[in-house]
């Protein structure tokens, strides 16, 4: 019955397939809430949620904020950008301060991998990882899964290829866990200088060229290429990247079957993705954004009452009655 998520959502690596399916199924009715004239339900009335963003992010923060407000939670946004040296200190102190203020949930975005885990281990409040360094971005992967399921009717057996900078991508890691757990076939494609060591051992195939990816896949999830990767010498130039790995209309024309193109945003048009692809019929990029709010509502809702002992109690005798 109830597959509780536990106290925190840190990553998809530690969720079971059933837990992931529960979140996706719970997201379905929340899609409808956002279509109502009054886009708000009282499920999290009286809950206090802090959106703690140590790293700049517009769309993820807004998506979480909509999700929280549509569940009637009280939200506070904290944009904290500390210097590299003070980051760790700030995080400990922030954790203690939040605890002292008796908040119910924290949504955290941080440049250091493990920051969400660190916070979750130290406070009683629920912690939702909104992206930690190069580790995971679980709600992004969940919304990607929901979008694939909406578009193709299933996830099992679907061939999904992540294209781009796998090495530095938390979106890639969360997608690999989520997709493989739900039975999709997963490949990654990008320059080998941006491919992490041992990635095949996570159950994915490495494709050398984007043409191979297009020939193989049902879904391409095109990752954002950060400009600083060029400056750090991982690739020679953005122009060459586009020539070799860019997802273009011309390349997609050679796809042997209908191909769905996704992108977690924000896009670099003309770097990893052709504008005509982003705005074209293959693209479900805006569906991803819509699903983002529903998935985040589902996660917040499931975590809100998600003290494991309460969820267990709910499974008991009381659940058999009506009303």
């Amino acid at each position: 019955m109830t597959a509780a998520l536990g106290k925190d959502l840190i990553g998809l690596e530690r969720l079971s397939p059933d837990q992931i399916r529960l979140i996706l199924d719970t997201a379905e009715p929340f899609k409808e809430v956002s279509e109502r004239p009054i886009k708000k339900v009282p499920a999290l009335r009286g809950k206090t949620i802090v959106n703690l963003f140590f790293e700049a992010s517009t769309r993820t923060r807004i998506s979480f904020e909509f999700a929280e407000k549509r569940l009637s939670a009280d939200t506070v946004n904290v944009a904290a950008t500390g210097s590299a040296v003070q980051k760790g200190e700030t995080l400990v102190d922030t954790a203690k301060n939040l605890e002292a203020m008796r908040i119910d949930m924290v949504v955290i975005r941080h440049a250091s991998s493990g920051a969400a885990q660190f916070l979750g281990d130290r406070i009683r409040s629920n912690v939702v990882n909104a992206g930690d360094g190069k580790h995971e971005h679980p709600t992004q992967a969940l919304l990607d899964l929901l979008t694939i399921r909406d578009k193709l009717g299933r996830i099992e057996g679907v061939k999904v290829c992540l294209v781009g900078d796998i090495l530095h991508s938390r979106v890639a890691r969360s997608n690999i866990w989520g997709l493989t757990k739900l039975g999709a076939q997963v490949a990654v494609c990008g320059p080998h200088s941006l491919m992490p060591r041992g990635i095949e051992e996570l159950g994915v195939t490495v494709l050398r060229r984007v043409e191979e990816a297009i020939e193989w896949a049902d879904v391409l999830n095109v990752l954002r290429l950060q400009l600083e990767r060029m400056e750090a010498g991982f690739i020679p130039s953005l122009r060459e990247y586009y020539r070799v790995f860019g997802v273009t209309v011309e390349r997609l024309a050679k796809a042997p079957r209908a191909l769905t193109v996704m992108h977690p945003g924000p896009m670099n048009r003309g770097v990893e993705i052709d504008s005509r692809v982003a705005d074209g019929p293959h693209s479900v990029i805006l569906d991803q954004v819509t699903n983002g709010v529903a998935v985040r509502m589902a996660v917040l809702y499931l975590l809100a009452g998600g003290k494991p002992e309460l969820a267990d109690a709910a499974k008991g005798p009381a659940a058999g009655g009506t009303d």
Partner: peptide, 26 residues
């Protein structure tokens, strides 16, 4: 589906299966 309007989320925990809400117009 009134799940999201219940006043007992805090005491019984979330009900995982939320049914469809569908109304015939305004």
């Amino acid at each position: 589906d009134i799940t999201l309007y219940r006043d007992d989320l805090q005491t019984v925990g979330p009900k995982p299966v939320i049914g469809e809400t569908r109304l015939p117009g305004d």
